[in-house]
Design a protein around this nucleic acid. Sequence first.
DNA 1: TGTGTAATTGAAAACGTTTTTCATTTACAC
DNA 2: GTGTAAATGAAAAACGTTTTCAATTACACA
Lengths: 146, 146
Amino acid sequence: MQFTEKKIESTLRREGYKLTPQRRAVLNAIADSHDHLTPADIYDKVRQEHPGIGLVTVYRTLDILDKLGLICEVHSGGNCRSYLMRRPQEHHHHLICSECGAVADFTECDFSELEHRLSRDTGFEIEGHLLEFSGRCHNCRKATPS
Amino acid sequence: MQFTEKKIESTLRREGYKLTPQRRAVLNAIADSHDHLTPADIYDKVRQEHPGIGLVTVYRTLDILDKLGLICEVHSGGNCRSYLMRRPQEHHHHLICSECGAVADFTECDFSELEHRLSRDTGFEIEGHLLEFSGRCHNCRKATPS
DNA sequence: TGTGTAATTGAAAACGTTTTTCATTTACAC
DNA sequence: GTGTAAATGAAAAACGTTTTCAATTACACA
C-alpha cells in the first residue's frame, strides 16, 4: 500500500507547507504512475491537466516531497533523477527493467553480516546502502524471449 | 592491483584507439587518485600538467574508458558521474565515505538466493545489480567521533 | 466571511554540465 | 616520409537545474 494522497497532504500541512493545486497535481502524477518518472516526465504529465504550471514548480515540489521522504529516487539506467512514490515506513529496494523501465519493489536485504565484516576490514562506520537489481521484466521477456 | 597504465594502453590500441598525450594524461589523473573524480575534477588535475587540453577531450576519453570497462562509475552521494579506476576482471562494489568521499572496495556479494527468490516472485530475469554502502571512514571517525 | 501575510507561483535569466559541430592537427599504418 | 582516418580544441548549442523577482494565493486569524 502506498501513501494515500490524504496521508501525504496531512504530512505536508503538518510540516507547514501549503496545499496548492500545483502540488496536488504533481502528487497525482507520481501516484498514478507505477514507473519512475523524471522531473520532465512529471512536468509533461501535469501539464496535460494543468497547462499553466511551471517546470520550476515541479522541481520545487519534488524537492519537498523528497525531503519529507514521501518519494524516493531511483539511480539505475544512467538516469540520475527519477522519482517513485514511497511505500510507508519500510526500507525497500527496486528491481528495474532495463527494457521498459518497469519497477518492482522488494524489502528483503540482510547485510548485517557483510556490514560487520566490512566495518572490521575497512574501519568504516556503515550508515546506509544502495541496492538495485536490473533485469528484464515479465512482460518484456514474453514480448521478445531471448 | 589496478590495471597498469601499460595494460590500459594496450587495450586502447587493441580496440583501435590512438594513444594521444591527452588520453595518457587523463588516464594518469584517474590512476593517481584513490578517490572518485568528476569530469571537472579530472579536467582540473590534467590541466596542471597539460594546460592546453579541452574539457571535451576529457569527456570523450572518459566515455571510451568507460565503454571499454577500464574505469567505472560511482553513484552515491548525489553525484551522478564520478569515475574510478577499475580493478581488473573482478566484479566489485564500493564503500563511500559520506564526509570525505574516500572509497574502499569489496568483492563479496552473494545474491544468488535473493535473486532466485525475486525472479520467482516478480517474473524478472535478473541481469545485474548495483550495491554501494555509505558511511564514515576510519579517518573521519577519528577526526570527529560522533 | 473577510483580511493580512508569509508562502508559493511562473517567467526569465543564470548556471553548470554535457554534447555537437567543424576546421585544424596528429598518431600511426604503410 | 607520406597519406589518411582519428583525435583535438574552440565555440556554440543543448540539456537539466537553480536563482531571482514581481505577482498571486492559501490559509491563520479576526
